[in-house]
Computed example of a mutant assay.
Amino acid sequence: MPPVDANPRLLEVIRTQTEIARLGHDLGSVMDLVAERTQQLTGADGAVVELAEDADMVYRAATGSATAHLGMRLARDNSLSGLCIAAGAPLNCVDSETDSRVNVEACRKIGLRSMIVVPLHHHNTVVGVLKVLSSRPNKFDDDDLHLLGLMSGLIAAAMFHATRLGASELFIQATHDALTGLPNRALFFERLQLCLAQARRENRRFGVLNLDMDGLKQINDNLGHRAGDAALQAFATRLRQCARAVDTVARVGGDEFAVILSQVESRDVAATCVQRYADAIRREGFAFENTPLPLDASIGQALYPDDAEDLASLLDRADQAMYATKRAKKAALAGA
Rank of each mutant, 00 (worst) to 15 (best):
A86K: 11
L232N: 02
R226F: 10
V269R: 07
V58L: 10
G149L: 08
L179W: 08
G88V: 09
A21W: 02
C93S: 07
E53A: 06
S298G: 06
A174P: 02
R282D: 02
C93P: 00
G153W: 14
L80V: 08
M115C: 15
M31Y: 04
Q241D: 15
V48R: 02
P183R: 00
A89N: 03
V274L: 13
R60C: 03
L314P: 06
L239F: 12
E53Y: 05
A234G: 04
G224E: 00
P90C: 09
N124T: 14
S266D: 10
D268P: 03
A199D: 13
L112W: 11
D32I: 03
E53F: 07
G335D: 15
S313H: 07
R200E: 15
C93N: 03
Q275P: 07
N290D: 07
L295V: 13
A308K: 12
T237P: 02
S134A: 11
T38W: 09
G128D: 05
A158L: 09
A302I: 04
P119W: 02
S96A: 15
H225A: 11
D95K: 11
Y304T: 09
M213H: 00
D296F: 03
Q198R: 15
P294W: 09
I85F: 01
R101I: 13
G215D: 00
L41G: 00
S152Y: 09
D221W: 09
G28D: 10
D247M: 11
S298K: 00
T180K: 05
K109M: 11
A234C: 13
L70P: 01
V269C: 08
L80W: 00
R9D: 03
P2D: 15
Q173D: 12
R200H: 05
G253C: 04
F140A: 00
L148M: 07
F235R: 01
A271T: 08
A278H: 04
S114T: 04
D142R: 11
A236S: 03
V259P: 01
L303H: 02
R101N: 02
N203G: 05
T98L: 15
P305D: 08
G228Q: 12
L196V: 12
R201V: 12
